[in-house]
Structure formats: C-alpha cells, structure tokens
Design a binder for these strands. Structure first.
Length: 399
RNA sequence: CGGGGUAUAGUGUAACGGUAGCACGAGUCCUUUGGGAGGAUUUAGUCUCGGUUCGAAUCCGAGUACCCCGACCA
C-alpha cells in the first residue's frame, strides 16, 4: 500500500484526555472516535482488526466451531423469557420492542432448538464475530471498554457433563493459542472468576497491563491468577498450591469462558433423549473474546515513547519501505519486488522530510523498516531496522 | 447511575463584559531530503436554546456532548 493513498493521516500532536491505546491509535491514523466508546477503524486499523479476527477464527475452527452470523437487532420476547429484558447493559430501540445485541444466548438457543432433536446431533459448537452493543455507564480506556465493539462469541452444546468439561479444557488451550499468536502469551493468565450457581469457577483470561481495570492475584508458581471477587473466599492463597505469596497486578480481561449448564436451555426447553430414552436439558458453554479490546490491549502491552510496536502476526504490514532522496525509480521497483516475494509492504512514497517519515514509521510501528537512499544504493544495499531494536543493518539490494 | 470539570477554525490553544488571535494542519507556488525543513500566499471558528446587558466567547439558567473519580461491568 502506498502511504500517500491511505485514507487517514498521522498527527503530530498528542490527543488530549485519552488512554495510551486510543492516543497512539488515533495519532498514528488507525482509528478515529465517533463518540465516547465508539470508534471508526481506518484502513490501518481495519487491517489489524482483521488480522486479530483471523487468528481467532482459525483457532475457533480448529476447536471445531462452525462460523455463523446472528442478527444484532433482537426482538423482546426471548429476553423476557430469560428475565434479561431489563438488563441495564442492553441498548433498547425506543418505540419498538427491539434491542441491540450485547450477547446471544437468547438468540442461539432457539436457533439451535430448530436443529437438535436427538443426542446424536451433539456435541456441536457455533461462533460468530460481530459487533456487540453494551450500554456502558462510562466508556473508557479507548478500545478497552467501548459501547460498540467487535467480539467473538462461541456457544457449545453437549449432552452430558463430561463432554462439556472436555470441550471446555480444549477451549482454554485454543484461547492460549490466540494470545500466543497475538504476542501476549507471557502477559496473559488464566484467572479464576465467579462461576455463579452452576460451577465453582468460570475462567477469565487476563492480560497484565498498566491500563487494566481489573486486579488479579497471580501465583507465579502455578501461572494461575485469581480475580478480586474470588480471592477473599480463597483466603488470599492459591487454590492449587496454597501459596500465599501472590503478586497483585493490574490486568485487562481479554477473554471469558463459562459453563452455562442448562441455564439457557431450560427456559427455551431445549432437551434431547439419550440412548435409553431419558430426557435431559442440553448443557451449554459460552466463550468470548473481545477482538477490539484485544487490539487495545496489544497496544498497551507493546509500545514505547515513540509509538506502537506491533507483534508480527497482528501488524498491518511486514515492511515499511522508506525512500530518501532521489531514488524513486529504484524504490518503486523494490516495492514491487518485495510484494512479489510475498511481503506486505507499506511504501512511504510521500514528499515529506526524512525526520517526519521516520517519526511516523516509529509511531505506526511496523516490525521492519527498510530505507533506500542514494547512500545505501552506492553500496548496492538497503538499510533495515527492526522496530523493537535500535541498530540498523545493511542488506544486499535486489533491484 | 452519583460527584466534579470542560466546551472557541480540521487539531491544539489565547482573548478584563467592548476589533475573535496564535500554532499545527489543509490548498497553491518555489526551495529542501538521513530524525517531525524554509519562504511567499490562501483557507477556516465561539456546542444548542433562553436570560441579563447599550454590548456576551466571557455573566446566569436549561439542554447536549466530552473528560476525570466512584458505582456498575453473564
């Protein structure tokens, strides 16, 4: 992509009153704010969001999930049935008994009921990647807490507890694969959270970042964390190894998985008969990842004073090609060749000063910067520099 | 949802109740090219409604939006 053509622009000034992630993403031209907690994704931001989305999609497919897309506009009836129509987080459409989807149990269960007649059709899981709407009393922290945000929600359906339990364990592994590919593995911890009435715990995935709204109690021995609401009943010790030397960290919840059991299948009367003809409610699990929140958390985790430092798999491009001086012909050719070799390249073809180009490259945060100038051409080289390193290298130039 | 604050050009900011100014950005032209370049020229603004006043960006009231603290957040 040619930088002169991008529908967005970097800004020199700091954005006032914004979190680190929103500040950097707005300044570098990835996103723009429409209103509190609601953002537009510009070309660069849209590419990053799609990269994360695809990582999540691939891992959910490997887990056996089938992708679907449910409506974001919901009727009142199923929400009344589960007594959640009055939920404060739900946006309602005035003068119409419609609401905007903030979660989809009420939609997916009646949908599943149309196809599940027998235990033979279980287990199965479906997921979608869709914008969710939540009437947050106070949106804040940029992409970390929005009123409209992109989320992956997966729902699994099982005949018995063993089946649900084993799928749940597999989902934990799939989630860690997602965080690993987003570069967040070392900072993300499985966290015990309140499980409500159905099981002792649910699990959150918490990424340790300064901007995080949650506090977790981390057991370094087990690499397990306990959230604030649980730690008291555990008497401030690790429930696994009884270690009392827990580290308190600020963290952002980048995933949450839950055994719903028959909480939603019961009100919608979703039952199957087993081999012996005995009828029981289908058991469910639900598994969420806030994709846009993950993008914000990645920026919070990977930046320096100059800008964003994108992890490889989520970066909008592989290479930021910057020509300096009168080398347009050679740079155009290099741009084509790098792309032919399969690289995603951002080409700074703009008529800007060197300092401005470099400063913007640092702000945007593409993993590898490649400079072509008269100086490097003399040596038949290009200069390369990784965003997370300071040293530059000369590389043979293949023109 | 409770408390506090703010609202001026695309962005960031200034102006005692009395001429709305500066910087950046954007447009045009020229010069410049290894860490946010220089000159010339152009462009564009007082959140909404009401009140006080000879006169309101400025004071008062209401609304709206945004920011901060808290509560909330399967």
């Amino acid at each position: 992509m040619k930088q002169s053509q991008i529908f967005s622009r970097a800004k020199k000034e700091n954005v006032t009153d914004q979190s680190i992630n929103a500040n950097l993403l707005i300044r570098s031209g990835f996103i723009r704010k429409l209103m509190s907690g609601v953002y537009s994704y510009l070309p660069l931001g849209s590419i990053v969001l799609k990269n994360i989305e695809n990582i999540v999609r691939q891992e959910m497919n490997k887990l056996g999930g089938q992708e679907i897309l449910m409506p974001a506009l919901h009727p009142k009836e199923p929400w009344e049935r589960t007594k959640r129509w009055q939920n404060k987080e739900m946006f309602k459409i005035k003068d119409r008994n419609f609401s905007l989807g903030w979660t989809h149990e009420e939609i997916v269960v009646p949908l599943a009921k149309q196809f599940i007649d027998s235990y033979k059709e279980l287990p199965f899981s479906v997921f979608q990647i869709q914008n969710k709407f939540r009437n947050e009393a106070r949106a804040k922290s940029g992409l970390l807490r929005g009123r409209e945000f992109l989320m992956k929600d997966l729902y699994s359906f099982h005949q018995n507890q063993e089946c649900l339990d084993s799928f749940y364990e597999k989902a934990i592994k799939a989630y860690f694969k997602v965080y690993q590919r987003c570069g967040l593995k070392e900072k993300t911890f499985l966290t015990l959270a309140s499980g409500g009435s159905f099981s002792k715990y649910s699990h959150e995935f918490q990424t340790v970042i300064e901007a995080g709204e949650d506090e977790i109690y981390l057991c370094p021995k087990c690499a397990l964390a306990i959230n604030k609401e649980i730690i008291e009943e555990e008497k401030y010790q690790c429930p696994q190894c009884k270690n009392k030397d827990l580290k308190v960290e600020k963290a952002a919840e980048v995933g949450n998985i839950f055994k719903l059991q028959e909480k939603y299948t019961e009100p919608f009367d979703l039952k199957v008969k087993d081999e012996k003809g005995k009828e029981s409610f289908v058991l469910m699990g639900c598994y969420g990842i806030g994709i846009s929140r993950l993008m914000g958390a990645i920026v919070e985790a990977f930046h320096d004073e100059k800008g964003i430092v994108w992890p490889k798999e989520v970066a909008p491009f592989d290479i930021h090609l910057i020509p300096i001086g009168k080398v347009k012909k050679e740079a155009d050719k290099l741009y084509d060749n790098l792309q032919k070799e399969g690289n995603k390249v951002l080409y700074d073809d703009r008529d800007k000063s060197v300092g401005e180009k470099f400063a913007e490259a640092d702000l945007i945060g593409i993993p590898l910067r490649m400079v072509l100038s008269e100086k490097t051409l003399e040596k038949k080289c290009v200069e390369t520099k990784k965003r997370n390193e300071t040293k530059t290298k000369l590389q043979k130039y293949k023109g």
